[in-house]
């Protein structure tokens, strides 16, 4: 493992909850670079994060959960990191599970999911609806990738360098990367794995998945899954821009060296 390990936390208006999460990360992943992507917060999230020694990347306005993650992926790649763990800023994901995810990465996986359903004691109370939706996506992913997946909507993930390379492409969604991204990753030849991870119920704040947004989310997911086999890369090709930049950086390093 040559590069640093990055712990990535996308955050929007989480100033009151992110502090303990960052403390937990310092305790459980001492050598890692902690990156908080502040996705247009208006409550001083960036300040709290910076106070606790995190690298802060600030979006001037809200772009969405997925876009915030991707900013972090870009950062990790610029830093040459080959291991990244992402968790939510609201304290749902227990930093104590970070070493487990990293261990699975070191064992050869490219993308590791932290699952709340593998151990009964990790499972927080959730609504029937959310649970059955989660089950359905788990079934679809398992059927498609032939990897036993129980918690495809988990935002608690570890990514290796091959996964990072894939996920900075512009097909990565702005809002919620989930089942469809897992399948895309598996189709691209990445090795998926899942380990048990401890999760807590949200304390305060609002869930990302609620009301009409949840309905849109279901629609988007089904549309994406249906289009997956016939999808082309987007016309914008941010991936090409990324590749070009990488080539430039390589050139600069070569000249410097």
């Amino acid at each position: 493992m040559s590069g640093p390990t990055v712990i990535l936390i996308p955050a929007c208006n989480e100033a009151e909850r992110i502090g303990p999460v960052l403390d937990g990360i310092r305790e459980h992943a001492p050598g890692a670079v902690t990156v908080v992507v502040d996705d247009g917060s208006r409550d001083g999230t960036a300040w709290v994060a910076r106070e606790r020694g995190a690298v802060v990347l600030s979006h001037p306005f809200n772009l969405g959960y997925g876009a915030a993650l991707q900013t972090g992926y870009h950062y990790a790649r610029r830093r040459g990191a080959d291991r990244l763990v992402q968790l939510d800023a609201d304290g749902q994901h227990d930093p104590a599970s970070i070493p487990d995810l990293l261990a699975a990465l070191d064992a050869g996986a490219d993308l590791v999911l932290g699952s709340r359903f593998l151990r009964p004691e990790d499972t927080p109370r959730t609504s029937m609806l959310r649970r059955s939706a989660s089950r359905m996506f788990a079934w679809i992913v398992t059927w498609w990738t032939h990897v036993e997946v129980t918690d495809p909507t988990s935002g608690f993930q570890a990514l290796g360098s091959r996964a990072l390379e894939l996920l900075v492409l512009d097909m990565f969604p702005d809002d919620y990367p989930d089942a469809d991204m897992l399948i895309t990753a598996a189709r691209a030849g990445l090795k998926l794995d899942e380990v048990p991870a401890r999760m807590h119920e949200r304390v305060g704040g609002v869930s990302m998945h609620r009301g009409s947004r949840a309905a849109y989310y279901m629609f988007k997911m089904l549309l994406n899954l249906a289009l997956l086999p016939v999808r082309r890369p987007s016309p914008f090709r941010g991936g090409r821009a990324v590749a070009a930049e990488r080539a430039t950086q390589r050139g600069q390093t070569a000249r410097a060296g």
Binding site: V56, H59, T71, D170
Partner: peptide, 19 residues
């Protein structure tokens, strides 16, 4: 849609460069 892609990409880039 195209502008949204570009906007996202540029915003991310600004955040990275600023840092």
């Amino acid at each position: 849609s195209k502008l949204t892609y570009r906007n996202k990409f540029l915003t991310q880039r600004v955040a990275l460069l600023h840092q």
